[in-house]
Write a protein that binds this DNA or RNA. Structure first.
Length: 493
RNA sequence: GUCCCCAUCGUCUAGUGGCCUAGGACAUCACCCUUUCACGGUGAAUACAGGGGUUCAAAUCCCCUUGGGGACGCCA
């Protein structure tokens, strides 16, 4: 069996033991971009050999988030019914057990692997000793020299099971990984001890399944995070033992937190779901993630998925780790937000408003007008909640910051004039021009101008002295609620 | 501890020996626009970790040091 290098096939292989981390999302994105740029296939494989931690719930979340990001896959589990789709399945490692066992048997028979009966305690003692002696903490199994028959009869006789370890002793001195991102990386083969292929319950372990699957699924390029670089040595050994040509490898830098450590759950949001719930747009998240370790040849910062695909090449990947800068993500999100037509923006904002329990006018015309006013002050969709809340009568309240403006001597005069003139009106909504004229009237009646005029007025409209321009805000409120609000403010005195 | 990776403004980065007096973006600050806030506009400040080589020439190539990170599982 040999890998067909004329066909570009890449994969993203999550283990369903949690949410989709932004680091995973970026790995998936880069694989997706590479595949599409090259006209290749993007495959999802589920690494669920850790049965204790894998859940269907997590699988659903991960697939849902990948879809939310727009990273559709050509082969792998269907995001709806979770059934396999594609010609290289099964795509769940838990359903490929017979395959792994078959290859493990072969290695066992060829003397490239052996059964080992070391206990956890014995292994732990070896590790401790090795570290103490300044050696890498590796297992040195006395069972390495046993023949397969000897081990089998031992298991039968004692009625015990052992793990299958890969034999590294007879291997060549060092291995070179021709890495697409960091050049040739040389590993001495004594860097690893005899590692486990099959657990004692027969379940295979990551490095083993990964090789078998990548080979059988005809994966041409393995693009993954740098933390897997040391695993590559083990995998190269397995490829060799199986007589297969390894795929091309590219190890991408890690995403770091402000302390320059691997980004983890400890410090704030790291899952796609969290960013979605905070109101980040998938296109903004993709764009931001793409710029973590990759740059456009023209230095373009805002790129659509199409542009990313078109411009994406591996040679522009940066080998150094990248700090996840939420401020820049926010900025980018606001750029995408503002670029969205109001009608579409409303669709995205609506679930947030509904969740915040805000009842608002239903006419599309009103919604568009409202969003035109608010979108310059939105960074994330969730910001709409605070922006729309004052518009909603049952959430109207007079804020703390309003006190100063209300305390001005001239304010009651302004407010009384405002209320009187409102009450004289009949029309439900005011136009911008009508409001400007009305404001002029209040100004003349009260003899107050400048901030002493418009600050109390703004308080009478939205309950706080700062916010969008009154002439755009006022036309969003109907007469009844404007009057009611003015009354509430006047009742303060 | 051992092995591996990495190193340009606070952050993301451009830069593949002369175009670098080091460019862009976010953030910061100032000014302009604006009867507030935001948006927008203009501008400022800020970086080649240190030391040795190689070369006519080094941010770019080599070595060392330092710093950071990752990996050393019957996790992936």
């Amino acid at each position: 069996m040999s890998v067909q290098n004329n066909k570009i096939r890449v994969r993203f292989a999550p283990s369903p033991t949690g949410y989709l981390h932004v680091g995973g999302a970026r790995t998936a994105l880069f694989n997706y971009l590479f595949a599409h740029h090259q006209g290749g296939q993007f495959i999802i494989r589920i690494e669920d050999t850790d049965q204790a931690r894998s859940t269907e719930e997590s699988l659903k979340i991960i697939l849902h988030d990948l879809k939310w990001l727009g990273l559709e896959w050509n082969e792998g589990p269907d995001s709806e019914n979770l059934q396999d789709r594609g010609q290289h399945g099964p795509y769940y490692q838990s359903r490929r057990l017979a395959i792994y066992s078959q290859y493990a048997q072969k290695l066992l028979q060829e003397g490239k692997a052996y059964y080992c009966f070391l206990s956890d305690e014995e292994i732990e003692a070896q590790r401790a000793k090795a570290i103490q002696d300044g050696r890498p903490p590796q297992v040195q199994s006395p069972y390495e020299t046993w023949s397969l028959e000897q081990a089998q009869s031992y298991m039968k006789e004692k009625d015990i099971k052992g793990v299958v370890r890969f034999k590294t002793r007879s291997l060549k001195k060092d291995y070179v990984v021709p890495d697409l991102i960091r050049g040739e990386v040389r590993f001495p083969s004594d860097m690893v001890g005899d590692f486990v292929l099959l657990r004692s319950d027969g379940m295979p372990v990551y490095n083993f399944c990964c090789v078998i699957d990548d080979a059988l699924m005809e994966i041409s390029h393995v693009l993954r995070a740098e933390e897997h670089l040391p695993n590559t040595l083990r995998q190269l050994m397995i490829y060799e033992a199986c007589g297969w040509n390894p795929p091309a490898f590219g190890h991408m830098s890690l995403i770091l937190n402000e302390e320059r450590q691997k980004l983890s759950k400890r410090q704030g949001a790291v899952s796609c779901a969290e960013f979605r719930e905070m109101g980040y747009l998938p296109e903004a998240l993709n764009n931001f993630l793409a710029l973590l370790g990759w740059s456009s040849p023209q230095g373009q910062e805002i790129l659509s998925m199409e542009e990313l695909i078109q411009q994406f090449t591996l040679d522009r990947l940066n080998p150094a780790g990248a700090v996840f800068d939420v401020k820049k993500l926010k900025w980018m999100n606001s750029v995408y937000l503002r670029a969205l037509p109001e009608q579409e923006l409303w669709q995205r904002v609506e679930p947030f408003l509904a969740k915040a329990n805000l009842e608002l006018p239903t006419e599309m015309e009103w919604r568009i007008r409202a969003l035109k006013v608010f979108k310059t002050s939105m960074e994330v969709l969730k910001d709409a909640e605070e922006l729309f809340r004052p518009i909603c009568d049952k959430h109207f309240f007079i804020s703390e910051e309003a006190q100063e403006a209300l305390a001005w001597e001239s304010s009651p005069v302004v407010l009384k004039s405002w209320l009187k003139n409102l009450e004289a009106r009949a029309q439900d909504y005011m136009t911008e021009e009508e409001f400007v004229a009305l404001q002029e009237l209040v100004k003349n009646e009260s003899g107050v101008k400048g901030k002493h005029l418009f600050m109390p007025l703004r308080v009478a409209v939205i309950g706080k002295p700062q916010g969008a321009e009154l002439k755009i805000l006022v036309p969003l409120l109907n007469l009844k609620s404007l009057i009611h609000r003015a009354q509430q403010v006047l009742n303060r005195y």
